[in-house]
Simulated scan of single mutants.
Amino acid sequence: MSTKYSTIIIDDEPPARDRLLKLLGNFPETFHILDVAKNGREAKQKIEASNPDLIFLDIEMPEVSGFDMLKRLKTIPIVIFCTAYDQYSLKAFETNSVDYLLKPVSLERLQQSVNKLKLFSKNNASQNILELLTELSLQKEVKKMTSITVKKGEKLVFVKLEDVSHFKADERYVSVHANNDNYLIEEPLSQLEQKLPDNFLRVHRAVIINTEQVKEVQKYFNSRFVITLNNKKKSSITTGRSYNEAVKIWINI
């Protein structure tokens, strides 16, 4: 007799959730769908309330990533990661005996996950997830940037990240605000975000701040915040609503 897993699907994109729900319908003897969640905060609440055996978890979500959500759980269920990005260390996923699905998920690949579930136990899977998160964190530390290269006239200038107060996207360029100077780079903010160390936090669709250069944080309407930076201009940044949860985690409220 096959094991049936109580399951929650976590993804911020409705089409992705709907597609996965439809595909899982091909395996009624394996999955019992308890619920779906559209972000990390909602997922944490539903996981703690229903204690599922298994979750399908999107990695890249606004506010709280799939990895960050897992770190906040007291008990981690079996996890099958779903991602549209292949820049993560997929080898690490394999060696830690947890599974991942690249979007768009296919029925054939999902069948492989079902077969692999027979090798899992809930306790071992939880330990494997913790080991994976530790390994990915160590990889991030190894690759951590300490400076960024910018153009100044005909010269290349190396700007120390500790001197950068924030990055701000504007049309096709990103401005680097460091000390009393501003520089322009063409690298998209989303790519830059992946490489920056943990003290840099995206607080708006167009802004990443250096949290070590924050002077104060004040509450604003619609549950947003106004962040004042400690640079010469005392730059004021209003957070975007979709990034509020990440800001709350950072300031620990």
Rank of each mutant, 00 (worst) to 15 (best):
L90D: 02
V217N: 08
R224W: 05
P188T: 06
L101K: 13
Y173P: 11
Q218E: 14
L57I: 08
K151T: 04
Q139S: 07
R109V: 12
K155W: 00
L24H: 07
Q127H: 09
S97H: 15
T211F: 00
N39A: 01
K46Q: 10
F225C: 08
V247E: 06
T238D: 06
I76N: 04
S126D: 12
M1E: 09
V214Q: 05
D181T: 15
P188F: 03
L133P: 05
R109N: 12
V142D: 03
K116N: 12
L101F: 06
S242C: 03
N39E: 06
K160G: 09
H166P: 02
T149L: 09
D53R: 13
A125I: 04
N210S: 08
K71Y: 00
S97P: 02
T95C: 02
K38T: 13
P28R: 02
T134L: 13
A246N: 11
Y220M: 07
P188N: 10
H32K: 15
K118D: 05
R109M: 08
Q45D: 12
E48N: 03
I80W: 01
I227W: 04
F81P: 05
T7P: 05
Y5R: 11
M1H: 14
K140P: 04
N179D: 14
N210D: 00
F225P: 13
